[in-house]
Amino acid sequence: MKIVVGSRGSKLALSQTNWVVDKLKENNPEIDFEIKIIKTKGDKIQNIALEKIGDKGLFVKEIEEALLNKEIDIAVHSMKDMPSDVPMGLKFSCIPKREDARDVLILREGYNSIDDLPQGAKIGTGSKRRKYQLLRYRNDLNIVAIRGNVDTRIRKIDEENLDGIVLAAAGMHRLGLYDKISCYIPVEIMIPAPSQGALCIQIRENEEDLEKILKCIDHENTRLQVKAERAFLKGVNGSCHIPIGALCEINGDKVVIEGLLGNEDGSIIVRKSISGNVDECENLGYKLSQIIVEEMRSFEG
C-alpha cells in the first residue's frame, strides 16, 4: 500500500511532514509513504504583505485542491493556517500532539529579552497580532513588516538592521533551532494565534481505512484545544486583517480559554478569558468570541 502525503516545500513544512510520516511509519511499517511538494499562492508571492494578497487559505488552497483531485491522499498543514471553514468533501483527521504554542524573540547579540531592548528598537514581524501586542507592552518599539521562511526572517536581522524578530516557538523547535531563541514571550504579554503549534492532517471524507491508519498519532488534549480555539476564530469571523489570538489550557477536566481581538489599526484590543468543563471546549470558545465581539462593538460605539 502506498500513501501520498502533500506538503508545502519550505524547510519547516517538510520538517513537519517528515515528522508525521516517521510517526506513521513506526506504527505502519508495511506502508510506503511518498511526500509530494505543492506550491501555494502564499509561497509564490513573498514580497507583499499577506493581508494584501488575500485571506486565510493562502498556504492551503492548492494543497486542498490536490486532495480533492486525488493527487495526494493526506495533506499536512499548520493548523493556524487553516481557514475556519473546511471545503466540502474534505475533513480534519487526527491532530498530533501540539508543540509549544508561544511566540519567541530572536534578538541581535547583546539582548536577551523584550525588556533589554533599547528605546525605539526595530522588531520585525508581518503579523498584526504580534505587532499590536508588542506595542501594548512596549509602545516605543518600531515594528517593521517582514515576510519569508524562518531562515529568511532570521537573515533580515542583519540585512535590514533589525534588533530582533518574532517567530513561533513551534517552528524553531521543529527545525532544531533552539540556540537561536533569545527568549520565549510570556502569554501574559502575547497570546498566540489560534491553534499555533498544532498540525492539521487533512483527508477526504469517507476514508475510514485511512482514518484508522492515522489514529495512532491523535492527541486528545490537542484536539480539544484546537476545537476551542477554532470555535473562537470562527465566532469572531477572523481574518489576517485584524489581530486575533486564542489559547486553551486544559487542567484535568477543567479548561480556561483566553481570547484577544483587535481592530485593524490596533487602537482597540480586547482580551478576556472564560472557564468551564473540558467537555464544553467548543461551546466555550464560541461563547468567548461573542463576549469579546460585544465588547469591541461597545468601544467602537
Rank of each mutant, 00 (worst) to 15 (best):
Q290K: 15
I146H: 03
I154Y: 04
S298R: 11
S195M: 09
R129Q: 13
A66Y: 11
V256M: 12
G276K: 05
R174V: 14
G259Q: 07
I48G: 02
E282F: 09
S195H: 03
T17K: 00
E71V: 01
R108W: 02
C216R: 09
L177G: 02
G124D: 04
V21F: 01
E208F: 07
T152F: 14
W19Y: 09
R102Q: 08
I143E: 02
N149C: 09
N27P: 04
G164T: 04
K97N: 14
L90D: 08
S78H: 14
M88T: 13
N206V: 08
I123R: 04
E258A: 11
M190I: 10
M190T: 14
Y184G: 02
G262S: 05
V21G: 04
I268H: 11
C281M: 09
W19M: 00
N161I: 14
P29D: 01
F232T: 02
Q202L: 12
K156P: 00
G120K: 06
V150M: 11
D279C: 07
V255K: 13
I114Y: 03
V5H: 00
I185K: 01
Q196A: 05
G259D: 12
V150R: 03
L288I: 04
Y178I: 12
E64I: 00
G262R: 04
F59Y: 15
E71F: 02
G285A: 02
L107N: 00
A75S: 13
R147K: 10
G148W: 08
A228D: 01
P87V: 09
E220Y: 15
Y184D: 08
G301V: 01
S289Q: 08
K56H: 08
S78M: 08
C216H: 07
G110D: 01
Q290M: 14
I114N: 02
V270Y: 04
K80A: 13
S289E: 12
V293D: 09
T40C: 13
A75V: 10
D116T: 10
L247G: 12
L14D: 03
A169K: 14
D115F: 10
L233P: 09
R129S: 15
A101K: 08
K287I: 13
D85I: 15
P118W: 05
I250V: 07
K215G: 07
I3G: 08
M190C: 15
I114C: 02
A66T: 02
E208G: 04
K287C: 12
C200D: 06
D253E: 14
I95T: 15
E62K: 01
D22P: 01
R136V: 10
G89C: 13
I45N: 10
I123C: 03
D253W: 13
A101S: 05
V150N: 04
I268P: 11
E62A: 06
T40A: 11
L199I: 04
C183G: 04
N112T: 07
P186T: 05
Q46S: 15
E294K: 15
N18K: 06
I291D: 09
E26P: 01
G262F: 08
N18L: 00
F299M: 03
